[in-house]
Design a protein around this nucleic acid. Structure first.
Length: 673
RNA sequence: GCGCUCAUAGCUCAGUUGGAUAGAGCAACUGCCUUCUAAGCAGUAGGUCGUAGGUUCGAGUCCUACUGGGCGCACCA
């Protein structure tokens, strides 16, 4: 509710300032005062006006004077406010008519936001190399991407979720080498293997790394494998295809445990086979986005120039590094960034080519993830046409920022004018990695050097087999939660207890990964990640479980309040007393309502900044406010029927917004726990 | 060498386009379970916001320099 309210206040202030002072303010700050006693909305605009007035006319007018005039104008222009006051040196504080606002909000949806992107948004996330188990770092990527997709959808956007499968890269080739040269296994042997295939490859991949280190000439085997895979020749290519596809399935299963689904799975092999690059190459050349180098050390390469400022900064002092990016090598082959640009042109519908699809992974709810790696012969038609987005958002770790910048430049260079806006709004959603605390490494059974032991964190390394596997962590969380549920809910049947434990585990891990801002490096610690007290996903669930419990107990006592809003509307004067005139207690009730009603501002900010932690922090704040309320006021034992309806209304409002916030974070609450 | 990013309580982190007394969790200490789930609540203690300047009515937030972390700058993917 506060989002549109804030916007209308902002507009009213601009209009009043233009009228009264003849100033056009480009931006007006409308903020939330530190507590409800100071108002529900506030603006320091008078300070800004004083400054501009002085600059424009030389007139020196005290901010407080300006604020008084502004408040006067707003009183005439804005409806729904009890009073509009001037405080301090020039703040204008706006106080809502509380009872009226609350009743109106009860009937409104939790959030109504206007779409920000001009059409479908393609969100790419997860994109784990299909050669080993997903680890906690991949989970951060997926949790971020999934939350982002949910935030955009809740904000009214159309979203398509892609998970890129790099099925032809060096990492898959390494596992192929391991199977063939270390283990002497054939495709038939591998197909017959049972057990957790991704975990098996996790170990094998680490062994291959060590095996290369023993004798570096063995790296030639990787190059051979890579070539065979790219040309789709022989047993090695067949092995790679089997491994990549099988592990991609493992990853989808891991993510499904967290409630994360995908729409499309574009494959690198298809981008090569269908030669997306040939098309992209022509368009980049035609647009003048790339140039052919005829001399110097990059002679024979096709290069994309960096921004002039970046070039200038890098070039003179440093011969070794320059800011430009090679896309086509002197031998005529395209590199990773070039392929990535081609792929993104496809995402934006700027390429006359498309993948062939086949249904790859079916979720219990009937949704299907389509693999963009089919041959023309086996091609089937997905329900909707993938790609052709108005904008893209790529969840990739911050280390890729440099390459991602060139991807965007390439797309901007090629796109027609009407597509520029969407691409400008497109972004690399950069996040810092998850590293391990030394304590976590030791807990995983990894011996650390003295030097590493002293460091605050140690990087995960698939090549060394050092990392926390996503499934293992989930297993640990689930069994810990199950022990709790068994103690607290002994009467429940086992399947239900398992379901609860699962929901608790998902809440714990998702909240843990989302409560940090994207640019914060997470030093993973088992104790922190598995905590169930304080600022945790478990705490959030607990609030919703208590709310469900209140409802259940009221029903059992025959005290259910089916339509509290109706009951309250008939007692409006009483409601106003509780919310406004009752001093401290009224402010407490209203503060809780305000916190709940700011859900849409949290959602709007998260969508604007593409930062899910905003919603995570908001959810915790709301749960905290509710917990205090819960301890102070016993709804079931409230003798006054109307007051009980009032308390229950506040509880319902909290429940609605908390549930909405959690659903956007991908967290679902059980009925009890 | 250049670019990006970070530095806030003992620890881990928030901090609303610059705004009102700098917040939370953990750890420590004190209380609260025959009363809607104590996986909880109330309270105490703990901060010259890396350093030095600058802009501003106002700076944790913006600018400059410095110090100290992390990442990136391949004809790798």
């Amino acid at each position: 509710m506060f989002h549109p309210l804030r916007e209308s206040v902002r507009a009213a202030i601009k209009a009043a300032v233009a009228r009264q002072f003849g100033l056009a303010l480009p931006d007006v700050a409308v903020e939330f005062p530190p507590n409800v006693a100071l108002g529900d909305l506030a603006t320091p605009a008078a300070f800004e006006i004083a400054k501009r007035l002085k600059a424009a006319t030389g007139e020196k007018r005290p901010p407080r004077d300006i604020a008084l005039a502004l408040a006067e104008a707003l009183r005439a222009d804005l409806a729904g406010f009890d009073r509009i006051e001037v405080a301090g040196a020039g703040y204008v504080n706006l106080f809502l008519r509380r009872a009226e606002a609350l009743l109106a909000a009860l009937e409104a949806p939790a959030a109504t936001l206007a779409p920000r992107f001009g059409g479908k948004v393609v969100v790419e996330h997860t994109s784990v190399n299909p050669n080993k188990s997903a680890h906690i770092g991949h989970l951060r990527n997926a949790a971020l991407g999934d939350a982002l997709a949910r935030i955009l959808r809740a904000a009214g956007e159309t979203v398509e979720v892609h998970n890129y499968i790099d099925d032809t890269g060096a990492q898959v080739a390494d596992v192929v080498v391991g199977f063939v040269h270390i283990e002497g296994k054939s495709l038939t042997d591998i197909e017959a293997m049972t057990g957790k295939f991704d975990d098996y490859c996790w170990d094998l991949y680490a062994r291959v790394g060590a095996w290369y280190a023993e004798d570096e000439s063995r790296l030639r085997l990787r190059a051979d494998a890579l070539r065979a895979i790219e040309r789709r020749e022989g047993e090695l290519a067949a092995l790679a295809e089997h491994i990549a596809e099988r592990i991609a399935r493992c990853h989808l299963a891991t993510m499904e445990r967290l409630g994360i689904q995908y729409d499309a799975l574009p494959c690198e092999s298809a981008i090569l086979r269908l030669n997306f690059w040939a098309d992209a190459f022509e368009r980049l050349k035609a647009a003048g986005a790339i140039v052919y180098e005829t001399e110097g050390r990059r002679a024979g390469c096709w290069v994309m120039r960096a921004e002039p400022e970046a070039q200038e900064a890098a070039a003179p002092a440093d011969a070794e590094h320059d800011a430009d990016k090679i896309l086509v090598r002197s031998n005529g082959t395209v590199n990773y960034t070039g392929k990535d640009i081609a792929y993104h042109l496809w995402k934006l519908g700027l390429l006359d080519r498309d993948f062939h699809y086949r249904a790859f992974y079916r979720y219990p709810d009937g949704h299907i993830a389509w693999l963009g790696g089919a041959t023309a012969a086996e091609s089937a038609a997905p329900p909707a046409r993938f790609g052709r987005g108005a904008a893209y958002l790529n969840v990739i770790d911050a280390g890729q920022s440099y390459a991602q910048a060139f991807v965007k430049r390439g797309a901007l260079a090629v796109a027609p004018p009407d597509a520029q806006g969407g691409i400008a709004a497109s972004a690399h959603i950069a996040y810092e990695k998850v590293a391990l605390t030394p304590a976590s490494c030791l807990e995983l059974g990894f011996a650390l050097s003295e030097e590493d032991r002293r460091r605050p964190f140690v990087s995960m390394s698939g090549r060394k087999g050092l990392g926390v596997k996503a499934d293992d962590l989930l297993d640990r969380l689930e069994s810990k939660a199950l022990a709790h549920v068994q103690a607290h809910q002994p009467a429940l049947p086992e399947p239900e207890r398992r379901d609860i434990a699962h929901k608790v585990a998902v809440a714990a891990i998702r909240y843990f990964l989302l409560k940090f801002a994207r640019t914060t490096l997470i030093a993973f610690d088992f104790a922190d990640a598995m905590a169930e007290q304080g600022e945790t996903g478990v705490y959030l669930l607990y609030s919703l479980v208590r709310l469900a419990s209140i409802r259940r107990k009221l029903r059992e006592s025959g005290l259910d309040c089916p339509a509290p809003a109706v009951a309250l509307r008939e007692r409006l004067p009483q409601l106003e007393t509780w919310l406004r005139d009752d001093g401290q207690a009224a402010n407490e009730f209203w503060a809780l309502a305000v916190t709940a009603l700011r859900y849409d501002t949290a959602l709007a900010e998260a969508r604007e900044t593409l930062e899910p932690s905003v919603v995570a922090k908001y959810a915790f704040q709301l749960a905290q406010a509710f917990s205090a309320f819960y301890n102070r006021h016993n709804i079931r034992h409230e003798p006054n029927e109307v007051r009980r309806a009032f308390l229950m209304t506040l509880a319902s409002l909290v429940e609605s917004r908390l549930r909405a916030a959690l659903s956007v974070l991908g967290i679902e609450a059980p009925e009890r726990m």
